[in-house]
Structure formats: C-alpha cells, structure tokens
Simulated scan of single mutants.
Amino acid sequence: MEPLTFPNGQLTMAGNLFLPDGFDPQTSHPAVVVVHPGGGVKEQAAGLYAAKLAERGFVALAFDASFQGGSGGEPHHLEDPYARVDDVRAAVDHLQSLGYVDPERIGALGICAGGGYAVNAAMTDYRIKALTTVSAVNIGTSFRRGWYGDGPDAAAVPTLRAVAEQRTAEAARGAEPTYLPYVPTEPDENTPRDLVEAGDYYLTPRAQHPNAKNKFLFTKSVSRIFTFDAFHMVEDLLTQPVLVVAGSEAGSLWMSTELHGRARSPKKLLIVEGGTHMDFYDVPEYVDQAIAEATPFFAEHLAADDSAES
C-alpha cells in the first residue's frame, strides 16, 4: 500500500493505493476505485476491499472524500453528494495518469452511500467500465424516506424547515454551525438494527479511526443530500455491467433491489442469506463472499482487449 495525494480541481485528495503482489510497473494493469461509506474514511471498509482486490491482481485506490478525512476542502465535515460523485471522477483521472494502469480497464466498487455515489458517477463517466455495489445506499432517498424506505419524500419537509431556521440563526445572529451524527451515539429500541451495528463499527475499537469524526454539517449537508437521487435516470444512463451485493437481513436491502430492478445494463444481484448491512464492512464471512463475486466480475469486464492490442 502506498499513501498518495491527487488533485480534484482546487482540492488535494488523500488516498491509499494498493498494488498486487509481484507488481510489475512495466505491465498494464486493471484498476478499481473503491468508494467509502458516508462518514467513513479510506482506512476502514474501503481500504479493506481495496486490499483484497489488490491481492487478486487489481490496482485499487481507496481515498477520503473531499471535505472529509485527510482530504482537503472547507468547510470540513461536509457531506455533499455532488462533490462526492466528482471525487470518483477525480480518482479515475488519477488512475488514468498512472503509466501502469490501463486507462480502458477501470472499474468502481462502492460501499453503502459510496455505492450510490459510484452508480451516479458511472452513469455520467463511461471511463468506468464495470461497477459493484456492496450494501448500496441511495443517500438522498434514504434521508427523505427513512432507513427502511417506508416514508414519503415529503417527510423531509420538517427537517428542511429546521435547516432554514438554523441558517437564519447562523447568518443573522452569529450562531455556531451545528452538526449531526452519521450514526446514533445513543441508540434506543426504535433505532434500526443496522444503525446500532454501525455505532459498534464506527464508535468502538472495531473500526474507529481519528479521521472519522461521526459528524457532518447540518445546514450545508442536509440541503444537498435531500435533493440528491443517486439512481435518477439509471434506466437510461447506466450502460455498464453492474454487480449488486447485499445481505438478506439488511434494512437497506430495498435500495439494492431497486437498483437491480431498474438497471437495464448487464446485471447480477447477490443477496447473501443472513447478512446485515454492516456485516459487509468487515465481517470476514460476508466480505469474502462479496469479494468472491466481485473478483470474477471485474476480471471479466476489465479484461484486456487482445484484438485492440493486435
């Protein structure tokens, strides 16, 4: 693994590049951009998947989102879906600049909200030749309708009114910015199981990292998140093959099945029996199943075009 930085417009992005065993810089390699969950950093689930992909022969790049982790951008702790989609494009830019990466053999793998961002990036960036989502979350739809997707989009209105009030307080009265947690710090009996498990992942030594602060700016993030739909026009714009992996017990499963149902490109849905949303972050039984599917999927769709070489 090599730590690195790469440009994203005026920002400097922090990444970790994972190289295959016996790496030969004189050879052209396939590569995968790995996109971390909302609130995550490259050292957590994204880095785990990148390392496992490198073990299987791919160059893999995990990076911190702009405004988060070790990457640049102010105000920090901003969750901006549109910026995060641009982050994926910038990561592809960087991979294409590396002489040992085949610029025509780049894929993307996204976890949780990173899955939704990877989908949205692939829909408008056909340099991404193949796509895998793991425990995919369409962050805008999830924020509006709730974790289980059983609420109406209009359920977002009270929160947006609160955003307006807070912006007034900050702009007119000099109030300090407020932050929301990505995962609940004090779950109760009404907290979805997945989010309780998310707290165990992010807030304990299991995967806690000093750059993952479990907070995002309330006013500046929410107004962007609530209008975002990662799957908008997916039927028409997603042309690349997609592998969708999720657990049968995940409260977020509905987003993976929606993506698979709406996509018209070559697609495969793997529902792993017994798996929850968070199991695919670091539980070996489930991570290994996701990687076992993603490896031949990427090998097939990122294969070298021998006819083009000849």
Rank of each mutant, 00 (worst) to 15 (best):
residue 239 T to A: 10
residue 95 L to P: 08
residue 93 D to K: 01
residue 297 F to T: 01
residue 124 T to Y: 14
residue 193 R to K: 12
residue 54 A to M: 06
residue 84 R to L: 15
residue 155 A to K: 08
residue 248 S to Y: 07
residue 207 A to V: 08
residue 224 R to M: 07
residue 214 N to T: 03
residue 134 V to E: 06
residue 126 Y to H: 15
residue 286 Y to V: 03
residue 42 K to E: 09
residue 183 V to K: 09
residue 42 K to M: 14
residue 210 P to K: 04
residue 148 Y to I: 15
residue 67 F to W: 04
residue 117 Y to K: 07
residue 104 E to F: 12
residue 211 N to M: 06
residue 77 H to A: 11
residue 87 D to L: 11
residue 6 F to I: 03
residue 32 V to L: 05
residue 257 T to H: 02
residue 29 H to W: 09
residue 204 T to V: 10
residue 38 G to R: 07
residue 38 G to Q: 03
residue 121 A to E: 00
residue 15 G to M: 01
residue 52 K to N: 05
residue 310 S to N: 15
residue 126 Y to D: 15
residue 117 Y to Q: 13
residue 254 W to V: 10
residue 240 Q to T: 07
residue 287 V to Y: 05
residue 290 A to K: 05
residue 32 V to I: 11
residue 14 A to F: 09
residue 45 A to M: 08
residue 219 T to G: 05
residue 229 D to G: 00
residue 236 D to M: 15
residue 148 Y to M: 13
residue 238 L to E: 06
residue 304 A to N: 04
residue 240 Q to S: 13
residue 207 A to K: 10
residue 169 A to T: 14
residue 284 P to K: 01
residue 116 G to P: 13
residue 47 G to V: 02
residue 272 V to F: 05
residue 206 R to G: 12
residue 81 P to N: 04
residue 148 Y to E: 14
residue 114 G to Y: 04
residue 287 V to S: 09
residue 82 Y to R: 12
residue 271 I to A: 10
residue 131 L to H: 05
residue 282 D to I: 08
residue 122 A to E: 04
residue 108 A to W: 11
residue 221 S to I: 02
residue 243 L to P: 03
residue 304 A to D: 09
residue 54 A to Q: 09
residue 212 A to D: 00
residue 114 G to A: 04
residue 100 Y to C: 02
residue 114 G to T: 05
residue 257 T to F: 02
residue 166 Q to M: 09
residue 154 A to Y: 10
residue 221 S to E: 01
residue 108 A to M: 12
residue 225 I to E: 00
residue 144 R to F: 00
residue 9 G to L: 02
residue 145 R to P: 07
residue 120 N to K: 06
residue 112 C to I: 14
residue 68 Q to H: 07
residue 82 Y to P: 15
residue 99 G to W: 09
residue 184 P to Q: 03
residue 59 V to R: 08
residue 30 P to D: 06
residue 238 L to M: 05
residue 38 G to H: 02
residue 17 L to S: 00
residue 113 A to N: 15
residue 10 Q to F: 15
residue 216 F to D: 01
residue 286 Y to A: 02
residue 69 G to K: 12
residue 241 P to C: 04
residue 190 N to H: 15
residue 3 P to K: 11
residue 121 A to Q: 01
residue 10 Q to I: 15
residue 154 A to R: 11
residue 116 G to R: 04
residue 206 R to T: 15
residue 299 A to P: 03
residue 58 F to L: 08
residue 142 S to T: 13
residue 217 L to Q: 07
residue 86 D to F: 15
residue 167 R to V: 11
residue 234 V to Q: 03
residue 111 I to S: 03
residue 136 A to G: 15
residue 58 F to H: 02
residue 300 E to M: 11
residue 144 R to G: 01
residue 179 Y to I: 03
residue 25 P to T: 08
residue 152 P to E: 10
residue 132 T to G: 06
residue 39 G to Y: 05
residue 283 V to S: 08
residue 247 G to C: 14
residue 24 D to S: 12
residue 111 I to R: 03
residue 180 L to Q: 06
residue 191 T to P: 06
residue 19 L to H: 05
residue 198 A to I: 04
residue 76 H to C: 08
residue 155 A to R: 10
residue 53 L to T: 03
residue 49 Y to W: 01
residue 2 E to W: 09
residue 125 D to I: 00
residue 158 P to W: 07
residue 204 T to Q: 11
residue 62 A to G: 00
residue 209 H to L: 04
residue 273 E to A: 13
residue 254 W to N: 14
residue 278 M to V: 06
